[in-house]
């Protein structure tokens, strides 16, 4: 594990990013943009599934917000992997990053399970199970955002 992490830190990408100024700053900004799109789409989608805005169909909301959330997730994962590579060994031991990754995995699995059951556009959803998925979504993405921010405030 340690060798793998060290090898990640030794890649050209990681070496370049460690010494960069504006590229590193831009990468941080793109990561925030990804998180913003994901969080900003997942929360209103989940609130709709929990019963808010009943006059707007869940399918209409899903057609707008599911692609936004998925794009945000993809951007956050790609930029997050690049940021991780800069200090792979240190970050791997960071408790908040571990919590964040756990929450991301649970959030993604819960979303995949919901779409597997109710379709990509969540047509005609009702009942307690979809509400549970929505609650998990809000909990996971809020927790991931918070623990992600806290990574920078501790030292392992």
């Amino acid at each position: 594990m340690g060798e793998v992490l060290a090898a990640i830190e030794g890649t050209d990408l990681a070496v370049t990013l460690r010494g960069a100024r504006w590229t590193y700053a831009a990468l941080n900004a793109l990561h925030i943009a990804g998180v913003a799109l994901l969080f900003g789409a997942a929360v209103p989608l989940s609130l709709r599934l929990l019963g808010m805005w009943p006059r707007i169909s869940s399918e209409t909301v899903a057609r707008l917000l599911v692609p936004v959330a998925a794009s945000g997730l993809a951007l956050a994962l790609a930029t997050g992997a690049a940021l991780f590579s800069v200090r792979a060994r240190e970050y791997a031991g960071n408790g908040f990053l571990q919590i964040k990754l756990l929450l991301v995995v649970v959030g993604v699995l819960s979303a995949l399970a919901a779409h597997a059951s109710y379709g990509l556009w969540l047509r005609a959803v009702s009942g307690r199970r979809i509400k549970a998925h929505a609650a998990v979504s809000i909990g996971c993405w809020s927790g991931a955002l918070l623990s992600g921010r806290l990574i920078a405030f501790v030292d392992t």
Partner: peptide
Amino acid sequence: MRQVLMAAAIAAIILVQGWSAAIAH
């Protein structure tokens, strides 16, 4: 789903306690 949330919460508590950190940087 409740069990998933519970497991996540327990895992989070274990992780936080398992590592001692100084608020820094």
